[in-house]
């Protein structure tokens, strides 16, 4: 689809924010429309990266399982990790990849808890690899709009506070 879906959402969010939010006179309605525009902006951001972040993350988590399978003492867990490590994406719809992603992250949590209880250099290396994956996990879920929202909130808060101050002066 051209223009692309994420572009259209960005335009809709921008139009709401710049054209219609200033026209609103009731404070709650104005704020809710602004937040709805930001939600559309978040969806646009997520849409662009939805496949990429799941493919990257699923690959990274499977890689951690493969590299450190030998560290795992629990045979049941080892078998599940081994099976998960061999998995690969065959259905590229976001919903399907999301399901796989959630399963892998649940298993990563279990693996993490397991290696925390183990001694030795290999276990520490496994923990380090998990933490690297978790740092990437966090970064992949950051939104650029978070900073935009913070600035918007400040501007509107100051405006309202000064209005109120004038009212009670």
């Amino acid at each position: 689809m051209k223009p692309s879906a994420d572009y259209i959402l960005q335009m809709v969010a921008g139009t709401l924010m710049t054209r219609y939010v200033p026209m609103m006179t009731e404070e709650k309605a104005k704020a809710e429309l602004g937040l709805s525009a930001l939600l559309i902006g978040v969806v646009s951001e997520e849409m662009e990266r939805a496949v990429a972040r799941r493919v990257e993350e699923n690959r990274e988590v499977r890689g951690v399982f493969s590299r450190f399978l030998h560290v795992v003492g629990d045979e049941g867990l080892k078998a599940r990790l081994s099976k998960a490590a061999q998995g690969q994406e065959t259905d590229y719809r976001v919903s399907a990849m999301d399901k796989a992603n959630c399963e892998l992250l649940a298993l990563l949590t279990e693996f993490h808890a397991h290696v925390e209880g183990l001694e030795g250099e290999d276990a520490r290396a496994a923990e380090e690899a998990v933490w690297q994956a978790l740092e990437n996990w966090t970064k992949r879920r950051e939104f650029a709009s978070t900073e935009v929202f913070t600035q918007m909130l400040l501007a509107s808060t100051v405006e309202k506070a000064l209005e109120r101050e004038a009212e009670f002066a």
Binding site: E32, L38, L39, E135, T138
Partner: peptide, 26 residues
């Protein structure tokens, strides 16, 4: 919308904060 966006916004920042806290100790 405050619940919809607020949850996403706060969760994003709190995830970054807790990661930094955990990096301090791990």
């Amino acid at each position: 919308p405050i619940v919809g966006y607020g949850g996403i916004w706060a969760a994003d920042l709190q995830r970054r904060i807790i990661l930094n806290q955990m990096k301090e100790i791990s």
